[in-house]
Computed example of a mutant assay.
Amino acid sequence: MALTKQYLKSKPVCKVTFSVPAEAATDSKEVALVGDFNEWNTNEATYLKKQKDGSYKAILELELGKEYQFRYLLDGQKWENDWAADKYVSAGVASEENSVVVV
């Protein structure tokens, strides 16, 4: 999994590319991105687009100067963190953690 950041000079946002490699999404039919940016609402999730190599990608424009917690939801059932997140924080549930992107 990977996060790629592109800071824009024209406006105060960062284009963040969220990527899930094929091996992390084996047998998954859909990968959704859920987090602070959509109030953790799975009905408002951003769905990553499957690439020719089997990986999944989505791009979000996020406001600068903030940290966003997020996770991936595979097939609406299995939660996964981003292996390349900027950091991890407690999700407040047992030993679960959320990924964090800092922009």
Score class of each variant (00 low, 15 high):
residue 87 K to E: 11
residue 84 A to D: 15
residue 17 T to F: 09
residue 91 A to D: 02
residue 5 K to A: 10
residue 23 E to M: 04
residue 102 V to S: 12
residue 51 Q to H: 04
residue 13 V to Y: 13
residue 28 S to M: 02
residue 39 E to Q: 15
residue 101 V to I: 13
residue 22 A to I: 05
residue 95 S to P: 00
residue 26 T to M: 07
residue 90 S to Q: 07
residue 79 W to V: 14
residue 24 A to C: 12
residue 16 V to W: 15
residue 38 N to Y: 11
residue 11 K to M: 13
residue 24 A to Y: 04
residue 50 K to Q: 15
residue 42 T to N: 01
residue 47 Y to E: 05
residue 97 E to P: 01
residue 46 T to L: 13
residue 39 E to V: 14
residue 83 W to M: 07
residue 98 N to K: 01
residue 75 D to E: 07
residue 60 L to W: 04
residue 98 N to Y: 06
residue 72 Y to R: 01
residue 88 Y to A: 06
residue 98 N to E: 02
residue 73 L to F: 05
residue 100 V to C: 05
residue 81 N to Y: 00
residue 12 P to K: 09
residue 54 G to R: 04
residue 8 L to I: 06
residue 27 D to S: 15
residue 55 S to H: 08
residue 88 Y to I: 04
residue 19 S to D: 03
residue 14 C to W: 04
residue 93 V to P: 01
residue 67 E to L: 09
residue 76 G to Y: 00
residue 1 M to K: 08
residue 90 S to I: 03
residue 19 S to Y: 05
residue 65 G to R: 01
residue 7 Y to R: 14
residue 71 R to V: 00
residue 73 L to M: 03
residue 76 G to K: 02
residue 1 M to F: 09
residue 67 E to M: 08
residue 65 G to M: 01
residue 87 K to I: 12
residue 79 W to H: 14
residue 48 L to P: 01
residue 42 T to F: 07
residue 96 E to S: 12
residue 76 G to F: 10
residue 14 C to G: 12
residue 28 S to L: 13
residue 21 P to F: 13
residue 95 S to L: 15
residue 97 E to S: 12
